[in-house]
């Protein structure tokens, strides 16, 4: 499994290239980092890979996931998970139901599914949190639930858009380790957008420094 970007870039509807084209290969279980000043388009790059761009933008170049081109595929068919700055747990569902929402449909009957959700909670050190409401969790706990929810959907790649930036220093360190461990364990290629050199250092994978695009390319 791997995620490959070749000459990958995003073009606005006025024809501006948002950032200079990116070439990148992320192997399975590897964590790549994309860095650059704020506003350079790190989130745009991640949204383009995940397929979340609005109709004002189009994508140039090629995106290949596990030897299959997915550049223009619909979001729901790409199997690329994403985590934003905020955990965005659905407020109308309990922690357990949030995880169940992520869990693949084809997996098991109701009982087995419940067990899988409980297991995910155990892994996130949130045993007995099944019936809690997301609003009652701390920031770090919410982030872990969000990660487990994304992983239960069995993504073939994972995008992280500064997911630690709202956590304090200690928590950021443990969360990072937890996340990288999970990715390596499940052999998922991960792309992390960050402006913290420490994140890139800990990731110990390929590094892309994003540069602003020429304003009237093409």
């Amino acid at each position: 499994m791997s995620l490959e970007l070749s000459k990958f870039s995003v073009i606005s509807h006025q024809g501006h290239t948002i950032f200079t084209p990116v070439d990148l290969v992320i192997a399975k279980g590897e964590v790549a980092c994309v860095m650059g000043p704020s506003g350079v388009g790190k989130s745009t790059l991640l949204n383009a890979i995940g397929g979340h761009l609005g109709s004002d933008f189009r994508v140039a170049g090629k995106l290949v996931l596990n030897a299959q081109e997915v550049t223009h595929m619909r979001v729901a068919e790409r199997h690329i998970g994403i985590l934003f700055q905020d955990p965005l747990l659905f407020p109308h569902l309990t922690v357990g139901d949030n995880l169940a929402f992520g869990l693949k449909a084809k997996v098991g009957d109701a009982k087995q599914r419940r067990i899988l959700v409980e297991q995910a909670l155990d892994q996130a050190q949130l045993t007995d949190f099944y019936h809690r409401h997301p609003q009652t969790l701390s920031g770090g706990q919410q982030s872990r639930v969000a990660l487990m929810r994304a992983l239960l959907a069995q993504p073939q790649a994972l995008l992280l858009d500064e997911p630690f930036s709202k956590l304090d220093l200690d928590l950021r360190h443990t969360m990072r380790e937890f996340l990288f461990d999970q990715a390596r364990l499940r052999l998922i290629p991960v792309l992390l957008a960050t402006h913290e050199p420490a994140d890139a250092h800990a990731a110990n994978g390929p590094l892309v420094i994003l540069k602003p695009g020429s304003s009237h390319a093409l």
């Binding site: 979001v75 729901a76 790409r78 934003f84 659905f90 929402f101």
Partner: peptide, 25 residues
């Protein structure tokens, strides 16, 4: 928009994500 993106990244179609996530809120 973010919640819809999340649900779709987990494999849900537009209309199903709207029904399961947005309408109840």
């Amino acid at each position: 928009s973010k919640q819809m993106s999340l649900a779709q990244s987990m494999g849900y179609s537009h209309s199903l994500a709207w029904r399961k996530i947005i309408i109840p809120q």
